[in-house]
């Protein structure tokens, strides 16, 4: 029999810090958990549409056309802005002339645009701040509408109303985030 007299009898095992302080809580948690599982179960009560996983694809990457639209978005905004400025100039000119509204312009008026543009610079009473707000609103509206229209018309992925609504929601929700994804989409 080996001699044990020289061996330190102190406990050389340790436990994690605060183990015993939290042990009571852990046991209580376990008991409560078991009771809940007995009464309510822990099975997954959620289901997915038929073949959802089989047909799953990362649409937001695969939809290359969306990428193109997203990349064009800043330019569309600029174009819409220019159109709006021209429109406001025409309206302002008509109002100040007191003669015509924009709906009354005919072809010859259209071809006379250069003259009108020249004249507009003489108008000093146009509220530029107000105009900027209107331009900003218009750009925002035009932009959103373009995207919504595109989503409804062009996307092959959209097959029912729910998906259309989801796509609509996506563009509304994430319209501020488009720039983050431009570099990814550019690679596709």
């Amino acid at each position: 029999m080996a001699k044990l007299t020289g061996i330190n009898k102190n406990n050389s095992f340790g436990v994690p810090e605060n183990y015993f302080e939290s042990l009571t809580d852990q046991i209580q948690t376990r008991i409560s958990e078991e009771k809940l599982k007995e009464e309510y179960g822990n099975e997954n009560p959620f289901i997915v549409p038929e073949n959802y996983f089989r047909n799953f694809s990362v649409k937001k990457i695969n939809n290359k056309l969306t990428g193109v639209i997203q990349m064009l978005k800043p330019y569309l905004s600029i174009a819409a802005g220019i159109i709006l400025v021209l429109g406001i100039w025409q309206i302002t000119l008509s109002v100040l002339d007191g003669k015509k509204t924009i709906t009354e312009f005919n072809d010859s008026d259209f071809y006379d645009q250069d003259i009108q543009y020249a004249e507009i610079f003489d108008f000093s009473d146009v509220d530029s701040a107000e105009m900027e707000i209107e331009i900003a609103d218009y750009i925002e509206d035009t932009d959103a509408n373009s995207l919504i229209e595109y989503t409804y018309d062009e996307s092959d992925e959209i097959t029912n109303n729910t998906e259309q609504e989801a796509a609509y929601e996506y563009f509304i929700d994430y319209s501020d985030d488009y720039s983050d994804y431009e570099d990814i989409l550019a690679e596709i």
Partner: peptide
């Protein structure tokens, strides 16, 4: 797409 019974709904 929620297939749970009343108990699961409460949970």
């Amino acid at each position: 797409y929620f297939n749970g019974d009343k108990a699961q709904l409460i949970l």
